[in-house]
């Protein structure tokens, strides 16, 4: 029972990080229909800011907001430079553009910073653990859970009570009508990118605090997980992204924890098999978006 609880805490922490990542993809997708595969590179940028802050001796408390700011700015720039010109292109055009942005950034990191991964100095506190009710919980796990809760509450408030948030929800439902009501497309889309940059930044801090290093290609894996989580939850639906992220985290941790040793090698295919199974029963994801229905033939 103890172990089960302990693994559940692990799953919550991992699922929370996935949820933030998937949300970042979903916010942009719900409005533009673009799956931004360069989302991971926003994390890499935030990671490099943490690294340079560590080298410059900037305290972690200051470094984190700087990293978040960097990824928000990078996200807005990304939209302005790369995605705005192809906004009216087909979904495939935007998808390929996002791959191109990701690759260009990766090569730039490799050439301008280093091909090798660079250490990030982290406060020793993050490697500590606390004892709660007989469980040993790492401080970075706790931070992941708290950060996820804070971000979800913030997002909920932003989407419900902030003008930009409400505009974004309206745009997600029907962009054409929303524009007729006087909502500026540029503002809404830039806002969505800024929000996804913020989510990427928070996820990056959590991600980097575990791995203690940044490398030019580090964005690939998280964006892949986020993509799976977003599909699992229902593309374009924010609540779905959260549900998908948590479910993916739970699937991964529980399989890793409770699959018999001789089956462990097949953990990933089994995990993805479960995802496929869920999609067989709920083809539009766990909590599908009301407006983006997959056509069934």
């Amino acid at each position: 029972m103890d172990i089960f609880l302990q693994q559940t805490v692990n799953a919550l922490a991992l699922g929370g990080t996935y949820a933030l990542l998937a949300l970042g993809l979903a916010v942009v997708f719900s409005i533009m229909g673009l799956i931004n595969f360069a989302h991971g590179e926003l994390m890499t940028i935030a990671g490099y800011v943490l690294m340079y802050c560590g080298i410059a001796g900037v305290s972690f408390v200051v470094a984190v907001p700087l990293a978040l700011m960097a990824s928000v700015i990078a996200a807005v720039l990304m939209e302005r430079i790369a995605f705005r010109p192809v906004r009216n292109g087909s979904g495939a055009t935007m998808l390929v553009t996002s791959f191109a942005v990701a690759m260009i950034l990766q090569v730039l990191f490799q050439n301008l910073i280093s091909t090798r991964s660079q250490p990030v100095l982290l406060p020793a506190m993050l490697s500590d653990s606390v004892h709660i009710a007989g469980m040993v919980i790492g401080v970075n796990k706790l931070a992941a859970i708290v950060a996820t809760i804070v971000m979800l509450v913030f997002l909920d408030w932003f989407m419900k009570h902030q003008k930009t948030g409400i505009a974004m929800r309206a745009a997600a439902e029907d962009f054409a009508v929303a524009r007729l009501m006087g909502i500026r497309a540029n503002t809404v889309i830039a806002g969505a990118f800024a929000l996804s940059g913020l989510l990427a930044g928070v996820a990056a801090v959590l991600w980097v605090s575990q791995r203690a290093s940044v490398d030019p290609l580090m964005g690939f894996m998280p964006v892949l997980k986020a993509f799976i989580a977003a599909i699992l939850g229902g593309l374009g639906s924010l609540r779905g992204a959260v549900a998908g992220g948590f479910l993916l985290g739970f699937i991964e941790i529980y399989l890793s924890a409770f699959l018999p040793p001789e089956m462990q090698e097949f953990r990933e295919p089994i995990g993805l098999g479960i995802v496929v199974l869920v999609l067989l029963f709920r083809p539009n994801g766990l909590i599908p978006s009301a407006t983006l229905k997959a056509e069934k033939v």
Binding site: D2, I3, Q6, Q7, N10, A13, L14, V136, G138, K141, W207, Q210, R211, M221, P222, E252, I253, Y254, S256, A257, P261, Q264, E265, R267, E268
Partner: peptide, 22 residues
């Protein structure tokens, strides 16, 4: 005493760590 496998780039090792600790 035992062995565990992971995939390259796995990121989260908490499940394995919890098992070894137990």
């Amino acid at each position: 005493l035992g062995q565990d496998t992971h995939s390259i780039g796995q990121q989260d090792f908490s499940a394995i760590a919890t098992r070894i600790a137990a």
